[in-house]
Each structure stands twice: as C-alpha cells, then as structure tokens.
C-alpha cells in the first residue's frame, strides 16, 4: 500500500499543471487578504472574525481549483493513456483508485491547511499593526477548519466526477457547472414544487455551511452540509470505481 501511495504522490507532484493550479489556489487568498488587510479602511476589518470571513471567501476559489486538480489527477491519466500503464502495473483497480483518492485528499487537506494558516497569519500580522482585535470565537475557528475540509471534499468531488466522466474538459465543466447550473436548476424545481428552503437539499451549496462563520436561519447546519456533500462524494466515487472496474481502460 505504501508503494502505491509513493507512486501516486510522485504522479501528483511531477506535473506542472498541478503546481500552477496549486500556486494560484494559494496565491489568490494570500494576495487578496494582504491587500484588504493593508489597504482597507478601519471599519472593514476590525475583528478576528472579519479576517476569518475574508480568508474563507477567497479560499472558496482555492477549493474549486483543488477540485480541478482532483479531477485532472484522474482524467489526465485517461487523456494521455497512462491509465493503461497504471493499471498494467497495478491490476487491482479498486485499491489503486482508492489510494489515488486518498493521496489527492491528503495532499489537498495538508496544502489547504498551510494556505489557510499562512493566509490568516499574514493577515493577522498586518492587522495587528493596525490595532485590530484579532481574537476569533468558536464559530470563526470552526469555519476555518470547515474551509479546509471543504477543500478536501471538493478535491474528492472533482476526482469522483473524473472517475465517471474520464474526459478532462467535460469533468472540469461539470465540476464548475454543478453549483452554478445544476444545483440552481434543482433549486428552481424544488421551489416550484413547494419546498420552502431548498438549500439543505443541494449538496454543493449546503456544504458551504461548513465554512460559514455566521449561519443564517435558513442555512443547513455545518454537520448537515459536511455529511451531505461527503455522502454524495462517497456515492460518486463508489459508482466511479464500479464503472472503472467493468470498463475497458
């Protein structure tokens, strides 16, 4: 098993596109937080939770980019034919695909944690020089942990879609259009059907509750959001593995 982990880690970190997406995913929140912390007027960023909110809001972009990395982690193997080399070296496909998912999840979670800590830390250093009160409450801490979990989950979500779709462009398109189009169509259908608050039924959108420092009255709970998206991701990956077990490579 450790050999497989090593192999998948080598694959993940030896492709330039992953570096580019990772750097953008790290740089975007950092640059925005630095600019806002350094340039905003006093009232905008006075408390720790204000900083938390902006870190999370910008890291949503990172989470989507990590999802794209997760998708490409698999689909690029199909687009370049390396999946055949991979399956020839490890014919136990289910094991291999689970290890691949695990490596993707671990790498994303660790990287997102670093991005979150560094971004928050630098923002805090800048703001401390501007007399901001930087203590954060339990909601803020939970939301920061939530955005890291969301990054990991979206990485797996992209990976799972890749398992089923296999084509890079189509997978990335579905991954990005899922919240923008698909869930909004479902929202419309549910609303038309008389569902008062459809958000808890939408896995992608309800998962954002995990990374919310202030939940509104209609929002699903963090646990609900996390478990719901988690369940959807598990189902998608399970379907993807079954499909890949049966299909020709």
């Amino acid at each position: 098993m450790i050999d497989l982990v090593r192999s998948e880690w080598i694959k993940l970190h030896t492709v330039r596109v992953n570096y580019v997406l990772g750097i953008i995913g790290a740089a975007f929140p950092l640059i925005v937080v630095v600019l806002v912390a350094a340039l905003s007027g006093e009232p905008e960023l006075r408390f720790g939770n204000d900083l938390v909110r902006i870190v999370i809001d910008t890291m949503v972009i990172s989470a989507i980019l990590f999802g794209v990395i997760g998708a490409l982690n698999l689909t690029s193997e199909y687009s370049h034919g390396t999946i055949r080399t991979t399956f020839a070296a490890v014919p136990q496909r289910a094991t291999l695909l689970l290890v691949k998912a695990g490596v993707s999840l671990a790498a994303t979670t660790i990287f997102a944690t670093i991005v979150m800590i560094v971004t928050y830390g630098i923002g805090a250093i800048i703001l401390s020089g501007r007399n901001a009160q930087l203590s954060i409450d339990g909601n803020g801490r939970t939301a920061l942990i939530g955005i890291v979990i969301l990054c990991g989950m979206l990485s797996l979500f992209g990976y799972g879609l890749g398992l089923i779709i296999r084509n890079s462009a189509a997978t990335v398109a579905v991954f990005i259009l899922w919240p923008l189009l698909l869930e909004n169509i479902v929202r419309g259908v549910l609303s038309a059907s008389g569902v008062h608050n459809p958000t808890p039924w939408l896995p992608y959108q309800s998962a954002f509750a995990m990374a919310s420092s202030e939940l509104g009255p209609g929002d699903p709970s963090r646990l609900h959001g996390g478990l719901y998206l988690g369940a959807v991701v598990v189902v998608i990956i399970a379907i993807g593995i079954v499909v890949n077990e049966r299909r020709d490579a």
């Binding site: 050999d3 497989l4 090593r6 192999s7 998948e8 080598i10 694959k11 030896t14 492709v15 330039r16 596109v17 690029s76 193997e77 370049h80 034919g81 390396t82 055949r84 080399t85 991979t86 020839a88 070296a89 490890v90």
Partner: peptide, 25 residues
C-alpha cells in the same frame, strides 16, 4: 508490457514517469 509508447504524460520527465511506475511495485 509495452502496448503503446505514447502512454506517457508529456509534462512529466522520463525519470519521473519511470519512478512513478517503479514505485507502484
């Protein structure tokens, strides 16, 4: 087995390609 010489990620170096394949076993 060598089924197709094109089954290689073009963005990866030859050594890294082989390292990944080798590590799996």
């Amino acid at each position: 087995a060598l089924l197709d010489a094109g089954y290689v990620h073009p963005g990866r170096t030859a050594r890294n390609h082989l390292r990944a394949v080798a590590a799996s076993n």
